[in-house]
Amino acid sequence: MAAILDASQVTMDFGGLRAVNNADVHIDQGEIVALIGPNGAGKTTFFNVITGVYKPTTGDVRITAPGKETESITGLKPNKITEKGLARTFQNIRLFQNMTVLENVMIGRHCRMKAGIAGAVFRDRKTREEEEQVVADSYAILKKIGLETFVNELAKNLPYGAQRRLEIARAMATEPFLLLLDEPAAGMNPHETRELDEMILKIRATEKISILLIEHDMSLVMSISDRIYVMDYGLLIAEGQPKEVRANPAVIKAYLGEEFNA
């Protein structure tokens, strides 16, 4: 079976700076894969290339949605890529602050809806039914993530941990087969991180969604990942299972610097 995501030889240049250098990443169905590395290693840039925010300088990103043909998504616009089934969250929370929690999730449903201008004005039966369905679906998603008590609250009034979870709920509303989480545990306390850990595993188990995550919290990465990629200065320096990566001298060097032997 083909990998659901296959990024081959992706390079991203910003002027003279090579942010991502010849990266090969693949994710198989049902995997949780982590992308780690020191600050400024190019992890988020790599995310942005996959989700269409940037067009890679060279290289190709192909996806194989379950039950569909393999296709290239290189250079597509972000909204198209989301339609194809890749959804993401952001490193610094980017919720729709002045919309309610439910509306945030409803926006996620946007690309699975059809109503246009005429439907909005005439509000025919189809549009009404679609609208009701979206409200019900969104509520169900909130319930799954455990945010149903905040339904009509403005997103900006939510506690920090809940905002992070709302981002995940919003991404899940787009019905992805691959969820890309950019530092989901950033700023969370150990208790919240543990909850997140359980939630990610639950999402994979119940929704059949594969996950690629960027994370600095090593306890989270080591406990849930099936495989880990390590990036440093735009280059992938290691790949493998958590225990392999942990013992890899190149990784230790990237994180801790070289050992000085007198």
Partner: peptide, 23 residues
Amino acid sequence: SRLGRSWVAMREDEVASEAMGID
């Protein structure tokens, strides 16, 4: 409507709304 919500989302955060599938 769906359209109106997409406008408000665009007002709130263009990058995020695009990532959520809004054209």
